[in-house]
């Protein structure tokens, strides 16, 4: 068999020490990593199993009003926490729109952040991929790329980040808590994932040994509870990655948008925060023409990376829909078809 070391450290310090050596990688639930290993895409020499690390599977309300979610909290547990879903409805909806029930039961919050792209050329080891093999080239660029990136891509890589969860998180200014060799630090989730540029292989801002221990939603994230939605267009109703998606969160005061948050999924190598669109929305009365203007702003820099120009139009329409639904108000409960455009159907 392919031999590798497997260690199960007792605490975070030991984990960091074990994972700092070259060829080491952290293992949480392995919903992505084990597939990568079976396919020969990842061949770590050491797996550092963090699933038994103490204290990382809790959700805590901090005194400053922030919510701290341990990295080992399961996707399903978080999404099905009624209080969490009430306060952060777009996050819960995004979580439930991802993967399948079985995967959500296993997958962790930290692992979700660290999942790799679903670009088929990344998974096909016989294809050229700069992400897998720096300098090899990108076979996706002139290949089957109708679902690839329209924002922030480079000639070196046109892959997208597949997470649903990260999309509303980045809109809500989520912060990643990291333990590393030089101690504890924080990063805005916005900067955790990198755009490809000339170094598509450098997918995140993490350093060797860095361990995501928690995710924090700041107090201000609560202000959007009444007007927050996640909308995801996909090629089947469940167990499919987004063709494109958007999270919209609005703070509406006296009929005016006090503050808007907007992010897109499935369009770039990272969850895409649309700051210009947020500025278009801020201080205005919510209406359809405003949403269209915001959508144009969000996709203003978009350009097709291949046979995917439709995604630019589609993403704008998704933005309009997400804003429309967010403005209409968070539904009392999450639909049985989370994230689906059909989730606004009564009884769906």
């Amino acid at each position: 068999m392919m031999n590798f070391d497997y260690v199960r450290p007792a605490n975070v310090a030991d984990a960091i020490a074990a994972a700092s050596e070259q060829g080491s990688t952290y293992l949480a639930s392995g919903t992505n990593l084990l597939d990568l290993m079976k396919g020969g895409i990842s061949r770590p020499s050491r797996l550092v199993d963090v699933t038994r690390l103490p204290g990382l599977d809790r959700v805590e309300h901090l005194s400053d009003g922030a919510l701290r979610i341990g990295a080992l909290v399961r996707n399903a547990d978080l999404a099905h926490d009624a209080e969490f879903a009430r306060v952060y409805p777009a996050v819960a909806e995004a979580l439930l729109s991802g993967a399948s029930a079985q995967l959500r039961n296993a997958a962790t919050v930290g692992g979700n952040l660290m999942q790799r792209t679903r670009c088929a050329y990344f998974y096909d080891v016989a294809s050229a991929c700069n992400r897998r093999w720096p300098g090899a080239g990108c076979d996706a660029l002139k290949g089957e790329n109708r679902l690839h990136a329209v924002l922030g891509w480079s000639e070196g890589c046109i892959a997208t980040h597949p997470s649903d969860f990260c999309v509303p998180l980045v809109a809500l200014d989520a912060v990643v808590e990291i333990e590393g060799r030089s101690g504890r630090r924080e990063l805005p989730l916005e900067v955790l994932h990198r755009l490809p540029g000339d170094t598509p292989d450098r997918e995140t801002a993490l350093e060797p040994g860095d361990l995501i221990v928690a995710l924090r939603l700041p107090a201000a994230a609560k202000d959007f509870a009444a007007h927050a939605r996640y909308i995801k267009v996909r090629e089947r109703t469940s167990y499919a990655f987004a063709v494109a998606s958007a999270a919209a969160a609005l703070r509406i005061e006296n009929g005016t948008i006090g503050e808007a948050r907007l992010a897109l999924g499935g369009v770039a190598a990272k969850p895409w925060r649309a700051c210009e669109a947020e500025q278009v929305l801020a201080g205005k009365s919510p209406d359809a023409s405003l949403y269209r203007e915001a959508a144009r702003a969000a996709l203003a820099d978009a350009r097709p990376s291949g046979n995917n120009a439709f995604k630019i139009e589609l993403a704008q329409r998704i933005v309009v829909r997400a804003l429309t639904l967010a403005a209409a108000g968070t539904p009392a409960r999450i639909s049985a078809l989370p994230g689906s455009p059909f989730s606004s159907v009564a009884g769906a």
């Binding site: 679903r118 050329y121 290949g143 089957e144 089947r236 469940s238």
Partner: peptide, 25 residues
């Protein structure tokens, strides 16, 4: 089946990306 026109390899030879209806469909 999504086939790379250059290599002839099938790019979605797995149940995640070769889409068949799930229960919700």
């Amino acid at each position: 089946a999504v086939i790379d026109r250059r290599s002839g390899r099938i790019l979605n030879a797995n149940l995640a990306e070769y889409h068949v209806p799930v229960n919700a469909d």
